[in-house]
C-alpha cells in the first residue's frame, strides 16, 4: 500500500511534498512533488504540476509533469500539460494535449 493515499472523497487545495510515493484517487489542486512513484488513478482529478519518479496517469490531469524516470499515460487518462521525462508512453485511449520533452 502506498504511503500517501488521497482517497476518492478527499479534496486537497495546496501542496503535497513527500520522499515516498503518492496515490491520488480524489482531487488535488496545487502542487504534487514526490521522490517515488506518483499514481493518478481513474476518477481522480489533479490540477497541479506534478514531479516524481515513475508517474502513472489514468485520471484527469491539468498541469505539467516532470519525472526523473518515466511517465505512463494509460487508457482513460485525460492530460493537458507538458510532459518532461526520459521515457514516455501514451496508451491507446489516452487523451493528451501538450508537449513532450524527452530530452533529458
Amino acid at each position: 500500500m502506498a504511503s500517501t493515499v488521497i482517497g476518492a472523497g478527499i479534496i486537497i487545495e495546496g501542496e503535497i511534498t513527500t520522499d515516498e510515493d503518492v496515490v491520488v484517487v480524489g482531487v488535488v489542486r496545487g502542487k504534487v512533488s514526490a521522490k517515488e512513484a506518483v499514481t493518478i488513478q481513474q476518477g481522480a482529478t489533479v490540477e497541479a504540476d506534478v514531479t516524481g519518479g515513475s508517474l502513472t496517469v489514468a485520471g484527469t490531469l491539468t498541469g505539467n509533469i516532470t519525472s526523473t524516470d518515466r511517465v505512463d499515460l494509460q487508457a482513460g487518462a485525460r492530460v493537458v500539460g507538458n510532459v518532461k521525462a526520459a521515457r514516455v508512453t501514451i496508451a491507446d485511449g489516452a487523451q493528451f494535449k501538450g508537449n513532450v520533452d524527452m530530452d533529458l
Partner: peptide, 8 residues
Amino acid sequence: AARVRGRV
C-alpha cells in the same frame, strides 16, 4: 514522509 500545505 509527506507534508501537505493547504486545505484538506
